[in-house]
């Protein structure tokens, strides 16, 4: 099982995502935005960061990168694709996911350990969660407000395509507390919070058991491994 992590100019969390893939038991493959080669990977991660300095719109210029042609083709063929934070913004700009991400309603960058409810536990990236389960992973963004028109929001809810919802605090003004969504097929998932920062004891969010012991993010990556091996 090989999982590609694409580095764009301004990506920050590409190596964290590679580490998460490794800790979950798969082989991470570093891919480059300027290439047209996915190097035969089985799944793809678009990592967080500030590609192109958030110029034009967050994720907009990255969504026009050479490799995005192959990413869109692979996503449409059913390859699992996870967009984290800036990667979610790219998926929205590439029209692989609906809606858009705008500046946080309070106008400030926010960084916190965020509780989420897993609303859809049947996607390629959430299969190892229970529907309704609450998890805690870090959130850090300046432009994480998820918006779409009412008709789109109703459709996303009706089709069970809200993958994650913020619990206790809505950190950025996202409509209907939406933290992440999936496409209809369940292979393309995007979310603002960062599962790759909660994969190893000692380096994750605090839990009731111990400081920095939270590893709720690991199951994003074990989910895609299980799904891919089951399909093989």
């Amino acid at each position: 099982m090989r999982v590609g992590v694409i580095t764009f100019p301004g990506s920050l969390d590409d190596r964290d995502a590679q580490r998460a893939v490794r800790l979950a038991g798969a082989e991470p493959v570093a891919l480059w935005h300027g290439s047209h080669d996915l190097e035969g990977v089985d799944a793809l991660i678009l990592p967080g960061g500030f590609s192109y300095g958030d110029y034009l719109r967050c994720g907009a210029i990255a969504s026009l990168s050479p490799i995005m042609t192959e990413v869109v083709d692979a996503a449409n063929r059913g390859m699992p694709v996870l967009g984290i934070c800036n990667g979610f913004q790219m998926l929205a700009e590439a029209h692989l996911l609906e809606g858009g991400l705008i500046r946080n309603d309070h106008g400030s960058f926010i960084c916190r350990d965020q509780v989420l409810r897993v609303e859809n536990a049947s996607t390629d990236w959430t299969a190892e969660f229970e529907a309704g389960e609450q998890i805690t992973i870090p959130l850090k963004n300046g432009e994480g407000g998820f918006i779409a028109d009412d008709e789109t929001l109703d459709r996303l809810e009706g089709e069970g395509r809200v993958a994650f919802r913020y619990v206790d605090v809505n950190p950025n003004g996202s409509l209907r507390d939406i933290a992440g969504i999936t496409n209809a097929r369940g292979n393309v998932v995007g979310l603002m919070p960062h599962p790759e920062h909660a994969v190893e004891p000692g380096f994750g969010p605090d839990t009731a058991a111990a400081m920095r012991s939270g590893v709720d993010g690991l199951r994003f990556f074990t989910s895609v491994i299980q799904r891919t091996l089951a399909a093989a």
Partner: peptide
């Protein structure tokens, strides 16, 4: 490209 019709 210069605008995103979802938000602009």
């Amino acid at each position: 490209i210069l605008s995103n019709s979802v938000i602009e």
